[in-house]
């Protein structure tokens, strides 16, 4: 974690010298009473945050896990213990299986499409071109919009026959699917992915641009003097230097793709014929629409475990290999 606010090196050194002296004085003053007091202070500061997290994050997550072992329709006490039955129902449910596949398609498509595209745009926009600031602002606009609002606009754009996109495509002679892009099972997920890319590419570009700002110009100049081409400079110098940003973006993108809900709910509701269900739409339709709370609980646990396993694997494989390379 790098701080966005960094002091000049000279300040830090001067500060450290002062701090060492003050620390020495403080240590002698410290007593057992101070220690207790310090503990109370820490408790005072972290208590509200921990309480909020405990009540609204940890408790519901555990409660979802508990729910997953019962058959419960939401009325009366939770007494009908069914062991792992909900899990076997969920894991053998074709719709859930498809949902998992859809989530992973989005995870990998995001990395395979948005990463190169975002990097390419960031590298292009990192040049000294006119209106660069404005471009950055514009590229960030879709990210700012609510997924729901972006979804509603795209839903209108993608209307079969009357929507702008079909009209434009037809007028240039590109055939459009009979049921519309969102109504054709084979195309619906791709269409959702295109809209998600429109919505989230700006974040990737912005983060990569921010990373590029940290790459000193002299490196480029030196490489250029040595006769390196533009592509070689990017490939050998720039991209390795912004690798931490890229890795973090991949991580955020992965987690986001696994949780995908809003856009799908607005564009297709998971349809047509479950072609775009995700784990989140599955558990919402099981939980809040059909009141199969046990099933929804089991699906939540599976969603969490998949996300957690991917996060751990990512940390282990990508980040560890990286620190070894640095050493």
């Amino acid at each position: 974690m790098t701080s966005p606010v960094t002091a000049a090196p000279a300040d830090i050194e001067a500060g450290a010298a002062v701090t060492r002296r003050v620390d020495a004085r403080r240590v002698t003053r410290r007593s057992g009473r101070d220690k207790r007091r310090k503990r109370l202070e820490i408790l005072f500061f972290v208590a509200p945050a921990l309480a909020l997290m405990a009540i609204f994050v940890v408790y519901p997550v555990f409660s979802a896990a508990r729910m997953s072992f019962y058959r419960w329709k939401g009325f009366g006490p939770m007494v009908d213990f069914v062991g792992l039955q909900n899990y076997s129902r969920v894991l053998t449910d074709d719709v859930f299986g498809q949902a998992v596949v859809h989530n992973f398609v989005i995870v990998f498509a995001s990395i395979l499409v948005q990463l190169p595209l975002g990097l390419a745009l960031a590298l292009l926009l990192n040049r000294r071109i006119r209106g660069r600031g404005l471009l950055r602002t514009i590229i960030f606009v879709p990210y700012v919009l609510a997924e729901v609002i972006a979804g509603v606009v795209w839903f209108q754009l993608l209307q079969p026959r009357t929507g702008l996109i079909e009209t434009v495509l037809t007028s240039v002679g590109i055939p459009v699917p009979e049921q519309g892009f969102l109504g054709t099972p084979d195309l619906a997920l791709t269409t959702v992915f295109v809209v998600l890319t429109w919505k989230y590419l700006g974040l990737a570009v912005l983060l990569f641009l921010a990373g590029l700002q940290g790459v000193p110009d002299e490196l480029h100049e030196a490489a250029q003097l040595d006769g390196a081409s533009w592509w070689q400079v990017q490939r050998r110098i720039t991209i390795p230097l912004i690798a931490p940003t890229i890795r973090t973006w991949c991580f955020l993108s992965m987690i986001g793709s696994l949780q995908l809900f809003d856009m799908v709910w607005i564009l297709t509701g998971g349809g047509p014929a479950n072609a775009t269900t995700t784990m989140a739409t599955y558990l919402i339709s099981q939980g809040s629409q059909r009141s199969n709370f046990g099933i929804a609980g089991a699906a939540s646990v599976v969603l969490f475990l998949i996300g957690f396993a991917m996060a751990v694997a990512y940390q282990f494989l990508v980040l560890r290999r990286d620190t070894r390379a640095d050493a």
């Binding site: 997290m53 009540i55 609204f56 994050v57 408790y59 519901p60 997550v61 409660s63 979802a64 729910m67 939401g74 987690i255 696994l258 949780q259 809900f261 784990m279 989140a280 558990l283 919402i284 939980g287 809040s288 709370f293 929804a296 609980g297 939540s300 646990v301 969603l303 969490f304 996300g307 957690f308 996060a311």
Partner: peptide, 17 residues
């Protein structure tokens, strides 16, 4: 770790709570 808990995971119990 809290970053890893999507609201979706806890949403149904959260609704009940």
């Amino acid at each position: 770790l809290g970053l890893l808990f999507p609201a979706a995971v806890a949403i149904v119990p959260l609704f009940i709570l």
